[in-house]
Amino acid sequence: MIWKEARNLYVNKWILFEAIEAYSEDGKRIVKDLSVINAYDDGKEALKEYREKHKKDKSREMYVYHTKNDELIIEERMWMGVRKNG
């Protein structure tokens, strides 16, 4: 589905979704097709499920976003640094 459809189905909700079709342009991720995994009233619950699912499968492109937003704007970030083990 597209973002507009998700907004109409999940009014005033936090949604956890997977990008089915997406590309990068001008430092942003443009999501053309998405699949809603779950909807929440509480953003903390959405982020908790995101972390659990991401830990199990890092290859999935998932996001948490609120449907109050007219447009789906996902800024790309370059992660730099050293990961500490243990």
Rank of each mutant, 00 (worst) to 15 (best):
I30H: 05
E49R: 11
E76C: 04
E76I: 06
E71G: 07
V64E: 00
H54S: 14
Y50W: 15
G86F: 04
N38L: 00
Y23Q: 12
E45I: 14
E52L: 15
E45L: 10
D42Y: 11
Y10W: 14
D26V: 06
T67F: 00
E5R: 10
K68C: 09
V64S: 01
I15E: 02
E49C: 05
E5V: 09
K84V: 13
K13I: 04
L47W: 15
K84T: 02
E49V: 07
H54C: 13
I20Y: 01
K84S: 03
L47E: 15
F17H: 00
Y65T: 02
D42K: 15
N85E: 12
N69R: 11
A22T: 06
E21T: 09
K84A: 02
K55M: 12
W3I: 03
T67D: 09
I74K: 05
N85V: 08
V11Y: 06
G81Q: 00
N69A: 13
E71P: 00
A6R: 05
R7M: 11
T67L: 03
M62T: 05
G27W: 01
D26I: 03
S59M: 06
L16A: 03
I37Q: 05
E18M: 06
E5K: 12
D33S: 14
K84Q: 09
K44Y: 15
A22P: 04
G27V: 07
L47N: 15
R77L: 13
K28R: 04
N12A: 14
D70R: 06
Y50I: 14
Y65F: 10
E18I: 03
A46L: 10
K58D: 07
K32E: 13
S59Q: 06
R83E: 13
K53F: 12
K58G: 08
K4L: 09
V82K: 12
W14I: 11
L16K: 03
Y10S: 12
K56W: 04
G43P: 08
E25W: 05
S35N: 14
K53Y: 10
V31G: 02
E45M: 14
V36N: 01
A22C: 05
I2D: 14
W79Q: 10
L9V: 04
K44I: 14
E18Q: 12
I30D: 02
E71M: 06
A39I: 02
K32D: 13
I30W: 05
H66I: 03
N69G: 06
E45G: 11
E75H: 07
L9D: 08
N69Q: 12
K13H: 05
S59F: 04
E45H: 02
V31C: 01
K84P: 01
G81H: 02
V11E: 11
K55F: 11
G81D: 00
Y23V: 00
D33E: 08
E49H: 11
Y63F: 14
D26E: 08
T67W: 03
K84L: 11
E61T: 01
